[in-house]
Design a protein around this nucleic acid. Sequence first.
RNA 1: GGUCGCGUGGCCGAGUGGUUAGGCAGAGGUCUGCAAAACCUCGUACAGCAGUUCGAUUCUGCUCGCGACCUCCA
Length: 491
Amino acid sequence: MEHPLFITNSLTRNKEQFVPANAPFVGMYVCGPTVYGPPHLGHARPYITFDVLFRYLHHLGYKTRYVRNITDVGHLVDDSDDGEDKIAKKARIEKLEPMEVAKMYTDSFHEAMRVLNNLPPSIEPSASGHIIEQIEMIRKIMDKGLAYESGGSVYFDVIKYGEDNDYGKLSGRIPDELIAGAGNERRELEGQDEKRHAADFALWKKADPAHIMKWPSPWSMGFPGWHIECSAMSVKYLGDTFDIHGGGMDLLFPHHESEIAQSKGSCGKAPVRYWMHNNMITINGRKMGKSLGNFINLEEFFTGKHKLLTKAYSPMTVRFYMLQAHYRSTLDFSNEALQSAEKAFAKLVNSYQELDRLKPGDGKESVAAKISRACYDAMNDDLNTAIALSHLFDASRHVNAAASGERPLAAADIEGFRKLFDELLFGVLGMRTDEKTGDGDVEGLMDLVLSIRAEAKARKDFSVSDKIRDELTRLNFVVKDGKDGATWSKG
RNA sequence: GGUCGCGUGGCCGAGUGGUUAGGCAGAGGUCUGCAAAACCUCGUACAGCAGUUCGAUUCUGCUCGCGACCUCCA
């Protein structure tokens, strides 16, 4: 656990060495999805990013509690009293009970996470299951005089809070400017008249009679505000102060800023030691958005059924592509880029499989140890998976050179590379190969077919040997002739 | 308008004050009955302008272009 892992802390905008408050335990919270629609490409990025972090912390020996919520209390569609909640709206459109909607999309979210090979979090609390905790937290904030009731709703008093705290530190904003900026040719917010200040945000909202999702509270029949769930649930499962909070950069303001205010406002302590934010995804250079017509669901990626996609891309291709970039950079998706990633990953897998066929040479170089160190140095440098992968390609070249008889590898290096691939590529980075047939019958049949082909080749009966190869290719079995006979793999 | 970030070779994408990212695509070579794969070699890129410096893609300033957030959004 002496690894010097450095991560970029959004709070200070610097890379800082990660030192947990209570090693070997680490508490990590990541904002989960609002389940009112199918999971899309944008969901893949943070959950893959923080899955890698979760896996890496485990690799380093930390016992990590990873909490990721499910928001099944839809946020309001717009900031007005008659605004509908997203889940309620979807329920009305699809003629379902709101909880049916939430369940349906929670299931599809889980399925997407599974095929992307993201490990399940340690705890996955739902907002609707923690209404009591949220009400409790609101009450504490009110007790501190940092929130006020108005018309059955409760608002956080940003100005008052700002007197003794730095609201805006995380996102680089100043409350006074928020008023100025807010007025800007923009909106006439209803409900604004209930607030003392434009920057105040809702902790509890009174529901109008037509609103379906509502719960009793000391103030009104209503529903919790947009940010309180994460504060309430992170405190419940990770304590007043925990190590890491992750999420997309778009959540920096106001969501995370408000989380800090709520937690500090209720217990007086800053909730998070390291804030981490992943950057956004673009498609063909443009932001992904429903109105831009370039909004792609993960399901559409995996089936190829979207007008912008020329083919289907496997979950592992999507994952690998994301890992080829640093998590704090925007990442652009295009068919060309995806296909490049698909081939690149196949290359690594191929090398990994070659390892089993290598015969050790007598050298005693420790190239594997050197490359391995470079890989983990990259991981320690703010999870630079792009660099780590580049070293893995280096390893791949060494393995392939050995396989082709160019530069044999010492037994220790072969083992070292195997360990590196197992632990880093398949372990920490969470890549996996598509399920092999795993069918002993197929192996046996292939051995037979290839031995017949070898005999034909020995007779120089190339029409037969080529026929076997071509027909196997049609059946999606790729045959490669090497120095020590042919090998095959599933295309 | 405010805050922040980005602009790298055909494409994607790291990174750095002077010495190799990497992947894909492309060119040549080796191997091979052929093919595929693999291996070897190759491109001398860092938006523009000015400045700091012995030296800048990397630092500073300006210009242009792009994007994110400021409103639900991963």
